[in-house]
Every structure is written in C-alpha cells, then in structure tokens.
Amino acid sequence: MKSLQKRRMPAFVYRNITFLVAVFLFIVFFGLGSALFTNFFSLQVFCNLLIDNSYLLIAAIGSTMVVIIGGIDLSVGAVIAFCNMALTYMLSIMKMPIIPAIMIVLCIGSLFGMLHGWLVTFKGFQPFIATLAGQFIARGACYLITVDTIFVDNPLIVKIAIFKFRFFGSFISIGAALALVMIIVFQIVADNTQFGRNVYAVGGNEQSANLMGLPVRRTKFLTYTLSGFLSAVASLAFMLYVLSATGTHGDGLHLDAVASAVIGGALTSGGVGLIAGTLFGVLTQGTIRTMITFQGTLSSWWAKIATAFLLLLFILIQRAIVTNRERSRVAKKVEVIDPVPAAETQGVG
C-alpha cells in the first residue's frame, strides 16, 4: 500500500525494524566468527546452530508469547529437565512404549503451564513468583525421579536422534526440523488467529483489551499453558540431543529464552514481539557459543555472560527508543477528505 507521506525508509523496513536488527546482528556475529576462525563459514556450522539449539528454539517460542503478554516464564529450563527426565525414565527404566510416554510428558508440561496460568490469572500472582515456584517444583521433581544420570537406550529413539536430513552437503537433525516447524506454525498462529492477536492486544493494554470485549483471562491462561506445553515439546528435542537425563540440565535456560525473545524484538513491557525474531535471537546466542567453542580456551561460562550482556544492551536500546519517541512525539499525518465547510462552524448544527 502506498504511503501517504514521504518516509525516511520503506514501510516494510519501518514496520519490522526490530526483526531486521535481529537478523543484522546475527549476520554480524556470524561474519565475525567466520573472519576469526577457519572452517566457521560453512552451511554445516549454520545447521549445527539449529541442531544444538533446537530445544531452546522451541522453548523460546513459549517465552516470547509470555513476554508479549507482559509476563515472564522462569520455569522453562526446569520443566525441560523434568520432562526430559520423566521421558527418559519412562522409556529406559520403565520400558514404556514411545507414543504414550510422549503424550504423558506433553501433559506434564501443559500442567505446569496451567499452574502458572492459574496463579497469574486467577490468583493475582506476579508472573515471576508463580513461575519461580514452578521452576523449583520441576527441579525438585526431577531429582525425585532420580539423583543419578540416566541414559536413553531405546533403539528407535537413538535412531531418530542420529537421523540426518541431508541437503546441499549438510544435514540437520529431526529435533532441528521440529524446531523449525514449530517456529513456522506459531508465527502463523501469532499473525492469523484471534488468539494470537489477542495475546498482542492484552500485552499492549490489558485494560483496553478488557473494555474492547476481548477474553483477557482466557488469553493469559492459555498463553502460560502454551509455554508449558512448548517446554514439554522442547524436552523432546532435548532428549534427542543429549540422550540422557540429569537433574542439572537446563540450568539458567530461562535467561537464554527471555534474551532470545528480547533480541528478537520483544519488549519486556509487553505488546511487542516477533517469533521469527526470536529465531534470530537464538541463532545469535548460538553463534556466540560456537565462537567460544572454536576459540577453545575460553570457559563456556562466557556464553552466559555474553547472553546477559546482550539482553542488557537490547533493553537499554529499547528504552532509549521509547524515551526518544515519547519526547519527540511527532505524530503521523493523515489526510482529511472533504475539509470542513466554514458554514458548519457557527452555531449549533
């Protein structure tokens, strides 16, 4: 659609600037890595980003939606660990068939999500404390199953885990493929379903959304439930990736998930966020981690510090943009058709 006024940049860029920044950032880091290390610039290295971070990608989708609605989910890593532990236990120790085990795990994740949703929506809990409690329950439950590390020995699972989708001389795993599918599905949901749009509306201004007649409570409850469900799906990808389960898995993952959403353009104040952007948030963090691995001598903890730093950087940039916008307040112009005839302005119409 043609713009009504001359803009400094095309409409597509203006409307999606945060997404483009996320893509740009990823390109910068990937380029940096390619420049610093040999063998970095390859399709397989890129595919490995998807493979190594498949579970984070899926979980970050849920975290993005929770951030858009104005909340936060601190339970992500713990729920993944617990679901992974439960699944591994059911498959390897209890020798359960695969499909029922997966169904159970998806229910577990959803139940966690529902608990959070219930506490936040109906009991007025602050999201952080509700999901922090959930984090502790999940972590504790994880250890309750076993304090040891257990391994997946189900031959079919192992086959799925090492399966490679080959193309152009590279490959990705099923977990990575699952992650990509999830991203596409949820981007479509966010853009084209009433539920998706309601999430944005409630996150933008809950009071207005209520007055506009939108189902605020249902939307909030569903969003948290979805985040729990996605954590469970993420645990499937996680299991395929590590083929083992231990209580310390996923520690600190909640920060990575939130950071991915924010780098991808989500505002912690709510109402803004892009799932496709989160993809690049994850890829950027993955690139940094890969660079650290390639470097060889840096401790892996630098990755966590880098993530925290990126998160801080993006939050500050967002704040600067918001403050700047509020100060300049140059509103967009509109065209008035059929200007008001002078005769109407006198007396009562």
Binding site: I72, T268, S269, S299, W301, K304, R319
Partner: peptide, 27 residues
C-alpha cells in the same frame, strides 16, 4: 536510574553472576 524492571535486571545478574563466579575461580 535506567528504569529497567527489577526482575529483569536481577535476572541478568542471577545467571551471569554464576558465570562471573566461575571466572573468578577459573572453573
């Protein structure tokens, strides 16, 4: 002074802080 939400601000240090501690003890 920067107006960052308390939760997010301390969340960053919560995770990064472990990393910093690791760096101090060289792992």
């Amino acid at each position: 002074y920067l107006g960052v939400q308390a939760l997010i601000a301390t969340l960053m240090l919560q995770v990064a802080g472990r990393g910093i501690a690791q760096l101090v003890t060289r792992g």
